[in-house]
Structures are given as structure tokens and as C-alpha cells.
């Protein structure tokens, strides 16, 4: 544990922000206050926090259907996120996108994505543009284990390596794609095995340990920024809730023991315990952080509740850009 305490606290803060946002979203969905689909990131916070903690504000990320955590970790605003989930005009996407398309281009967050695997090629494009402009920015593609079975992932990984682009492929291996376990859909156990096939270095990290994720991310981001090309990080992690929403839809596709085992390894509490043990922080300090951030989420719910819905005249707004691109 050599990371400076302020860095550890920063990673902790990012994780707690994700947890509070997601728990609140889950509660709202359960009381039917959120329209549409909701894929929660609870349990996987260390991945988004550890990786985004290694990025600059002007670096880019692409995300997945499980995208709230990535936006929060990149600095997303609770108010605009909550308003978007409710389909309000004040939301990040003005109510056009919702949970599955939440995005903030000003934070370099190029969108959650409803199409599995579709984010990775877009990250390659962002990495290409970053290299092209030569400003030293990098791109990160977040993606699930299941998405590595899609052609788009393969094409993106290969092209990134062929063009030697400044990109990090960050895999959230939670062992399931929807309700189907990984071992039914691929004959390898570790996603990192794929990296060699494209010619990039890959590492496995404990995705419940934010420090481990962060250290691997710092190394990969540094490699990308300094012209060393792509890397793949496989974070072994787990989602605490169902694929979609909170409830288990009645079908037991994961055993209680398995879920309990992973919950024991909660990434936030693990970090807190360790920091307290190492005298890097106190319980009171953490309590104060939770209380402060919780107030932020309550305010965001109130903001979203009070916000207006978009009006029907907005349907046709934003389909095309009206400005000319001619130089």
C-alpha cells in the first residue's frame, strides 16, 4: 500500500459516489419511478474508480449498458444523471437517451451503449484522434466479459494494436453475460488470454481491490500516453444485483453462496478496513464522507423530481447538427 493517502481517498470517494448513485437508482426503479432498463454497477465500483482515477479530465472513455459507474467515476454530475434516468429535460441527454445512453462529452465520456461491444471500436477512434492531434490524451474502452465474444471487440482490439494507438482495454469480467455464465459462452477462463492474440500486454487484477486496479491502470495509461501502444486489463469482479434492475427475476442462475462470497469482498468496505488498519483514515472520516455524498444524492433526486419533462416539440431537436462544417 504505497499509494499516497489522498489518492486512496480519491478512489474511495469515486467508489462511494457510484455506490450511492446506484443504490438510489435501484430504490427508485423498485418503486417504479424510473422508466426503461436499469443496469446497476454495484459491486464493480473498483474498476471504474481505479481506472478513471488514473485518467486526466481530457482523456476519453467509452462505456457499456452498465454505464453509470463510468460516468460517475469520470466526474459526472448527480443532478443531471438522475434527471436523465427519470427522462427529464434537465438530464444529461435532455431525456433522449436515458440510463443506457448517458454521456458527457465535456468529461470525455462518450456514452453508455445499448449495443454490446459497440463502445470498443469508438474508443479506438478516440484514441486515433488523440494520437492524430498529438496532445497526449488516451482513451479507455470499458467492456464486459460477454462483449469480447462480439466481432466488434475483436476488430477494435486488432486495429488498435495494428495502428499502435494510445488506448487501454478495461474488461469488467463479472463472469456472466445477462443470465448465462462465462463458461457456456467461451472456452477460456481469463479474458486476458485474448490480449496475446492481438499483440498487446495484458494483466489480470483483483477487480474488488481498487488499489490493484488503479496501479495496473496507471501503468497501462502511462504506456499509452508515452507511445507504448494498447494494453488490456482484466478486472475480476462481480455485480451484486441482477443483470437488469435489482430483483432476481425469479430465476436462480447464481447460487446464494456465490453472491454472498463476492459481497464479503465489497470493494468499498475492503478499502475502508484496510485504510483504518493502516491508520490512513478513521471510521469517523469515512462516516463524514458517506454523509456528505449522501446529501448530494438526496439533492439530485429532488432536483430530478422537480425538473420538467421535455415537451413534444423536442422530439425532432438534435437529430442533425445544423452548423456547417466547411472550413
Amino acid at each position: 500500500m504505497d499509494l499516497p493517502v489522498d489518492v486512496q481517498l480519491d478512489l474511495h470517494r469515486r467508489m462511494v459516489r457510484i455506490r450511492l448513485f446506484e443504490e438510489a437508482a435501484g430504490r427508485l426503479a423498485e418503486s417504479n419511478r424510473l422508466p426503461g432498463f436499469l443496469h446497476l454497477y454495484v459491486g464493480e465500483e473498483a474498476v471504474a474508480a481505479g481506472v478513471c482515477g488514473a485518467l486526466n479530465d481530457d482523456d476519453h472513455i467509452t462505456s457499456t449498458h452498465r454505464g453509470h459507474g463510468h460516468l460517475v467515476a469520470k466526474g459526472g454530475d448527480f443532478n443531471r444523471m438522475m434527471a436523465e434516468l427519470m427522462g427529464k429535460a434537465t438530464g444529461y441527454c435532455k431525456g433522449k437517451g436515458g440510463s443506457m445512453h448517458i454521456s458527457d462529452t465535456s468529461l470525455g465520456m462518450l456514452g453508455a451503449n445499448g449495443i454490446v461491444g459497440a463502445g470498443s471500436p469508438i474508443a479506438v477512434g478516440a484514441a486515433f484522434a488523440n494520437k492524430y492531434r498529438g496532445r497526449g490524451q488516451v482513451a479507455v474502452a470499458f467492456f464486459g466479459d460477454g462483449s469480447t465474444n462480439i466481432g466488434a471487440f475483436h476488430e477494435a482490439a486488432n486495429m488498435a494494436c495494428a495502428l499502435h494507438l494510445p488506448i487501454v482495454f478495461a474488461c469488467e469480467n463479472n463472469e456472466y453475460g445477462e443470465f448465462t455464465p462465462r463458461d457456456k459462452t467461451m472456452a477460456i477462463t481469463d479474458i486476458v488470454d485474448r490480449a496475446a492474440g492481438y499483440g498487446m500486454p495484458g494483466v489480470i487484477v483483483d477487480g474488488m481491490d481498487v488499489i490493484a486496479v488503479h496501479e495496473a491502470a496507471v501503468e497501462a495509461v502511462e504506456r499509452a500516453r508515452s507511445g507504448g501502444g494498447p494494453s488490456l486489463i482484466e478486472a475480476k469482479t462481480y455485480r451484486f444485483y441482477n443483470h437488469h434492475g435489482v430483483q432476481n427475476l425469479g430465476l436462480k442462475y447464481r447460487s446464494d453462496d456465490e453472491v454472498a462470497m463476492w459481497k464479503q469482498r465489497d470493494p468499498i468496505f475492503t478499502l475502508e478496513d484496510r485504510m483504518i488498519e493502516n491508520k490512513a483514515a478513521t471510521r469517523d472520516q469515512f462516516d463524514a464522507i458517506w454523509a456528505e455524498l449522501r446529501a448530494g444524492i438526496e439533492a439530485a433526486i429532488a432536483f430530478a423530481d422537480e425538473s420538467p419533462y421535455p415537451t413534444p416539440d423536442q422530439i425532432m431537436v438534435g437529430v442533425y447538427t445544423s452548423m456547417s462544417g466547411a472550413k
Binding site: 422508466p35 427522462g87 433522449k96 436515458g98 421535455p310 422530439i315 425532432m316 437529430v319
Partner: peptide, 16 residues
């Protein structure tokens, strides 16, 4: 439907 992608918000989709 009008010539736009399907909007998310129920407030828009119901008119779409």
C-alpha cells in the same frame, strides 16, 4: 413515426 430516433423519455415516446 417522425424522422428521429426513438426518444427515451416517456414524455416524448408517447407522442412519437
Amino acid at each position: 413515426a417522425p424522422f428521429s430516433p426513438v426518444p427515451f423519455s416517456p414524455a416524448l415516446e408517447q407522442h412519437y
